[in-house]
Amino acid sequence: MTSQISNRVFALMFSALLSVQSFMAQTSSMEALVGQSLSQLQNPTAESYVNCVAQLQRVEAMYPDSVLPTYQLALQSLVFVVQYPADEQAERMLHEAEQRIARLKERQDVDPSDLHTLQGFYYTDLIVRNPALGATFYRDALEHFDKALRLNPDNLLAKQLQAQFMANMPGNN
C-alpha cells in the first residue's frame, strides 16, 4: 500500500516535473525568440525597428497566451514612433501599439504598472507626433506614469519615461 502511494506520488512528481520542464522549455524558447527579435535593434534604424516588430508579431502568433511578445510588440512600436515620428510607418505602428495595449488590458496576468507605463508612453507618442495635441494629452500621459509608479515604485521604465517626458515638456527645456 505504502509502495503504491509512493509510486503514485513519484508518478505525479515525475509528470509535474515533465510539465514544468516543458513549460520552461517553451518559456525559454519564447524568451529566446523575443531576444532574437530585439537583437535586431543593436544598431537601430527605422528598418530594423519595423523588422523587429514584424518578427515579434510572429513570436506573438506562436505564443498567443504569453504576455511578453505582446508587451514587447507594443513597447517597440511605441519606441519606433518616438524615434521616427514623421516616418510613413509611424501611424501603423501607433495603431499596432493601441491594439496590443487594448489586448493586454483584457488579460488578468499583466502587471498593471507595466500596462500604465505603456499607456503613458502611448499618449507621449501622440504628443510627439502632433505637438498641437500636447495640451490635450499631457495630463493623461503623466497620470498614467504616476499610476505606474504608485503601483510599482521600482518600475524603471516608467521612471525613465516620466523623467524624459518632463525634461522635454515645452517650457522645461
Binding site: L33, V50, A54, Q55, Q57, R58, V59, A61, M62, Q89
Partner: peptide, 15 residues
C-alpha cells in the same frame, strides 16, 4: 506594403 508574411509557428517570414 509592410504586411507581415510568415510561416505559422515559426519566425520565418518577411514584410
Amino acid at each position: 506594403p509592410q504586411a507581415n508574411v510568415f510561416i505559422d509557428g515559426t519566425i520565418d517570414g518577411c514584410l
